[in-house]
């Protein structure tokens, strides 16, 4: 690699590493994995630097490489699935009625107006981190990437029923988590 190219890539590394890392961390919620993915991204960038014609911005290019890496990462079999879809026994009793301590409480109107603030966002992110891995992937594919249901099911190798059961469980968990952290009841 010629020195000029190296200098340019070094410059990009300085400018974009934090952003790339934050994105990868956000998508994987694992620091080590996120770091590996960003390092891999730059390895690909070094190798295919010749192919980068400047049709897109360096940032867009690097992010597209990273996103491929993230997708590849999730394509591997899930490392660990900590719940089975449909098992919502935390929330419902054996007659499928609400467990007493899980009954949704009324959220106060005036507090709902505070939802835009930074604190709430932090709570939301923290609650998302608590989701089981598979639920987390489902939520992200659905809301962040806005993928089609059929595509998500295909990528995660699950049935449509399974898919909304996972989202159902995730929503129950998120709702409860936000209620306990965001609303003074």
């Amino acid at each position: 690699m010629v020195t000029a190219d190296k200098q340019l890539l070094t410059q990009w590394a300085k400018v974009y590493t934090n952003e790339l890392f934050s994105w990868a961390y956000y998508k994987t919620s694992d620091k080590k994995i996120a770091e590996d993915l960003v390092q891999d991204t730059f390895l690909v960038a070094i190798e295919s630097f010749e192919k980068f014609k400047g049709n897109s911005s360096p940032k867009t290019w690097l992010f597209s490489i990273l996103n491929h890496k993230i997708v590849d990462f999730y394509r591997k079999p899930p490392r660990e699935i900590s719940f089975e879809a449909g098992n919502a026994s935390v929330f419902f009793d054996k007659n499928e009625n609400w467990q007493k301590d899980q009954v949704p409480k009324l959220w106060k109107e005036e507090e709902i107006h505070l939802l835009d603030d930074e604190t709430f966002r932090t709570i939301l992110y923290n609650c998302l981190q608590n989701l089981a891995q598979r639920a987390y992937i489902c939520v992200f594919a659905t809301y962040l990437e806005e993928k089609e249901t059929s595509l998500i099911c295909q990528e995660l190798n699950i049935s449509a029923t399974n898919y909304w059961q996972i989202l159902h469980r995730a929503k129950l968990q998120l709702r409860k988590c936000i209620e306990s952290n965001a609303f003074k009841l």
Binding site: K6, L9, T10, A13, K14, T17, V38, Q39, I46
Partner: peptide, 11 residues
């Protein structure tokens, strides 16, 4: 730390 590591990889 990651930024420095990557810069080193490039060099």
């Amino acid at each position: 730390g990651l930024t420095n590591k990557i810069i080193e990889n490039i060099s």
